[in-house]
């Protein structure tokens, strides 16, 4: 049935939520993303919520869970484009989305992911180990 599409751009997965999410669709997205991170060895997940008019505790929990799952799978999650009214409401609701990184828009989110990927690659690049970042995606 209706699922939220996940796009792959380089080693980043982009999710743009464009509809008022029903709870089961949110849960499906959470699972799909986990599968897709493993399948594509993605390094980052970008979730664009600029079209969302509200984020309640359920969606908030979904975002936190996605961030935790992707961290376990060695990918960074950045949530971008939250509307000001949504942010104010979330704070009042008592939800701070701990563990979720945020950016103003998709561009900045991409830059943020690129920067943190670089840092990690630097850490992993001592000469004696030779090349380590050849990511071969399993066949489609």
């Amino acid at each position: 049935m209706d699922r939220v599409p996940i796009l792959k751009i380089g080693d980043i997965l982009l999710v743009s939520i464009q509809v008022d999410l029903q709870d089961h669709i949110a849960l499906a997205l959470q699972e799909d993303l986990g599968d897709k991170i493993v399948a594509t060895s993605a390094r980052g997940v970008l979730i664009d919520i600029s079209a969302l008019e509200i984020v309640d505790s359920f969606i908030g929990r979904m975002l936190s869970t996605i961030a935790s799952i992707s961290r376990v799978l060695d990918a960074e999650t950045v949530v971008v484009g939250m509307r000001p009214a949504v942010a104010i409401t979330l704070v009042e609701l008592g939800l701070s989305l701990g563990g979720v990184r945020t950016a103003l828009d998709v561009d900045r989110g991409m830059a943020m992911l690129a920067a943190s990927t670089e840092v990690r690659d630097d850490e992993l690049e001592p000469d004696e180990h030779g090349a380590i970042d050849t990511v071969s995606a399993p066949g489609d």
Partner: peptide, 12 residues
């Protein structure tokens, strides 16, 4: 504090 938290949620 609330203002600062809300700004963080936006990515600022």
């Amino acid at each position: 504090l609330k203002t600062v938290q809300a700004a963080r949620l936006l990515g600022a």
